[in-house]
Design a binder for these strands. Structure first.
Lengths: 229, 229
DNA sequence: CCAAAAGTGTTTCCAATACACCCATGC
DNA sequence: GCATGGGTGTATTGGAAACACTTTTGG
């Protein structure tokens, strides 16, 4: 979907166009952000949309998602999972199309500043203040937020949002921002450590005029089901 | 997918074929069963597959799912939700195709005996002993079972599997069959009633030489999130 | 009175919650 | 010595789990 250039010319035994759209989240500056691109032509000119693209005949859906992620957002090797498939008849006024939405998480570290500067029309938007989007992309983002919130509670996917090393306060803050409410510091740290989600790196980080914080890393950087909250 | 007759003739700006496939579950005779149809021609002749069909240009995915459910399985107005979209390159040797899998539940009551007799090549299969299936349908069924198991625990979708009125033992048995392990009778009944999942109908059912069982019905027959287990 | 399935309460235990103070550092 | 954020332990509570006997009916 989004800013593809292809025109739609249905053949006789027509099949809807098939696209992947990426909902890429990151926690930046104290809010949950999603990456949007501005469409540069056509009936949706000027509207914002999720990075997306048509699925090619020789690539799987997952491969298409990875390619689009790389081409449009400039990131590789990040957390990625299929979210939901949107197939309403009127979602694109240019013609029938289906969008397989994917859900991705990016480290607050490398939050693609390079890419952001290269395209003038790509930006991180606070999920609480989205601009007018093309298609049904606002709905897709909502589905992504819902998935993110619920998966935080029973999986270790938070590793996708944090850099290799981080403080427990940073981890807790990420949880709070996404869930939208505060958590008890002592209970949070106890639980996180009890279930072995993270391990100490041995290092510390000094930050201004306060006690240095211990740095941790995730014990496992592969998707895993765990009772976190 | 499955037994569609269409031949595949890719046009220039080709898009993969788009189908919906239905994973229809029912609890029958003490096991969890899934509805399969035998393919009658082509390279998959004789193999079993999920009921499915191509998505038309003028219907949404959900509408396509309902239509296929009605046409191929002869059921309407049953529990239905999107499951996952399968888009591997080699899933159909006849050509590129994408399948949006849907998940449906049928009352053990009206488990479509009419339909079953009309087509000689449609049957309920025990999910523990599936035949060789065409495409990646075995994988799709597995995804369905996983979804069913997890949703039983935090939603009221069990209403989709039971008739209007049922005994608590029947409800518990359905849970046990799907989960694959036994549950404690007292705890189960306590929980089910505490959370208000069911209400008494006032009637009882006599069954042989034992005490009659009270009949219950679901308080709500719409999908709802509840902590059941 | 026997067989067969329905129905019912209490105790135990663990995990979630609530809660307040000391620690290390920079200025 | 004070301001800043880091770090820790305990008591309470509520829900999950374990567990065995009585009731109603038909034959």
């Amino acid at each position: 979907m989004s800013d593809r250039k292809t025109t739609i010319a249905p053949s006789l035994n027509a099949s809807p166009l098939l696209a992947v759209d990426m909902v890429i989240f990151s926690v930046i500056g104290g809010t949950l952000k999603v990456l949007l691109i501005r469409i540069g032509s056509g009936p949706y000119d000027g509207k914002w949309a999720l990075p997306g693209g048509l699925v090619r005949m020789d690539e799987s859906l997952d491969q298409a998602a990875e390619r689009v992620l790389s081409e449009k957002a400039g990131v590789d090797d990040i957390y990625l999972e299929q979210l939901y498939t949107f197939g309403g008849v009127d979602r694109d006024i240019r013609g029938r199309s289906i969008s397989v939405a994917y859900f991705a998480l990016v480290n607050s570290d490398r939050c693609l500043p390079a890419t952001i500067e290269y395209y003038s029309d790509i930006a991180w938007y606070d999920t609480a203040r989205l601009p007018k989007t093309a298609f049904d992309h606002t709905k897709i983002v909502s589905a992504g937020i819902e998935r993110l919130r619920s998966k935080l509670g029973y999986s270790n996917i938070a590793y996708g949002l944090l850099p290799k090393e981080f403080t427990l306060t940073e981890l807790q803050t990420a949880y709070e921002i996404i869930l939208g409410h505060e958590l008890d510091k002592r209970n949070f740290r106890k639980k996180i450590q009890d279930i072995g989600l993270v391990k100490e790196s041995g290092k510390v980080r000094k930050s201004g005029q306060s006690r240095p914080a211990r740095l941790y890393s995730f014990t496992e950087r592969k998707p895993r089901m765990v009772d976190v909250l």
